[in-house]
């Protein structure tokens, strides 16, 4: 059957919708690879972010944050706990 070799890639829709999602993904992975946090720490935060809204509301409200909005919020919080945050949010110690 023609074009079969392309199937594993073709079978899906876009992984990232917007450039910022791609970037947020890369930052989270890069900082984990650098040892700034364990992946489980990031994952736990991500679960908490998703959970905060509740699956039901997320399902019914198309304006609710999408997956990478949760991802971004998790990244911000995990970094803030390590003293890495843009200006006014920064905790006192590093």
């Amino acid at each position: 059957m023609e074009g079969m070799a392309a199937l594993p890639r073709r079978s899906g829709e876009l992984v990232f919708h917007d450039a910022w999602e791609r970037r947020a993904f890369a930052i989270a992975v890069a900082l984990c690879e650098r040892g700034l946090y364990d992946w489980d720490v990031f994952r736990a935060q991500l679960i908490a972010e998703i959970d905060q809204l509740g699956a039901g509301r997320e399902a019914s409200d198309p304006a609710a944050p999408g997956y990478y909005e949760h991802w971004l919020a998790s990244l911000e919080k995990v970094l803030a706990r390590r003293g890495i945050a843009p200006d006014e949010d920064a905790p006192p110690d590093d």
Partner: peptide
């Protein structure tokens, strides 16, 4: 928001822009 984080971590030398491109 993403740009603010990227600028911050790149500025602190935690990661390079090239490394982020490579991961993507």
């Amino acid at each position: 928001r993403v740009k603010a984080i990227e600028d911050l971590v790149v500025g602190k030398g935690l990661v390079t822009t090239a490394a982020l491109d490579r991961i993507v």
